[in-house]
Amino acid sequence: MTGRALLPILLAAILIGAIPLFVTANTVLNFLVFTLIIALAAQGWNILGGYGGQFSFGHAAFFGTGAYAAAILQTRFGINAWAAFCLGIAAGAAIGWIIGYLSFRSGLRGSYFALVTLAFAEVFRILANASAVTGGAAGLLVKLDVRPENFQFSSRAVFVWIALALVVAVLVLTAWIERSRFGAQLVAVRENEGAARALGVDALRVKLLAIALSGGVTAAAGALYVQYFLYIDATIAYGTWISVEALLAPIIGGAGTVLGPLVGAVTLHGLGEITKTLAGRVPGIDLVAFGALLIVAVAFAPDGIIGLARRLRARIGRGGGA
């Protein structure tokens, strides 16, 4: 991998990682952790939706699975929190593979695939809300026991750095995918599946690998959510809110780009916070801002913020040359 690809990642890491050194306000750190968790979930969506062109409306299925797996393994089976976190990621990847196998093997594409993923997430939500293992509607509390070996820290700054480390790891993973054979084949499937198959691309295998990776990454976001808030219930874990967040951030930031999901998540939640502060206590005002931003993005920047920046840079470059 070339330095040129890693430089923006390094810059983003330093920029965000330095914030807790200068700011200690809990609201700011809370905002950072939450935004990074959303960014991580969005990065998962971006692998399947941005690069693979398979638009999922149900990434809550993976977020929730990661969250519940991490919580249940700790509370009911007494497994170490770090191990539970890793197993949560594995569970998300497995659920991704299963949903992918069921839908891609039957040739579901486009809006049909989107609807099936939405249905899976909703079924999981209803099951989690009813089942005893998940604590039903009351949800699950992870016992407060602040020790590093329990993946619990008294300092919020540590959580910022852990979330950032995960986001950066996935940025590097995504940059690697962009330059790999798997990535080329995944993008080919997005652009034209028939033509890709004629060129020897095993479309089913490529899509299954993408959805498993995607599920694993989004599950990591869910598991991290549990470690940070120490509580999960069906509406948080499998609610449509996270499915929407996971797809909105990459679309606004730039789907199918390495930095798109992070840029999108920061923009969305930054704007959400600003609107909340300006508009005062109007409930749901940040969601209005999200909606307005989505309309603006679809109308004027269909390739997201990253795409817009690239176009502007190309235009300036041409203008400078002339």
Partner: peptide, 15 residues
């Protein structure tokens, strides 16, 4: 059936 969003080089590289 080109991969319309990709460059010519990337199109051929898929093959």
């Amino acid at each position: 059936q080109p991969f319309a969003g990709l460059s010519v080089a990337d199109n051929i590289a898929v093959g």
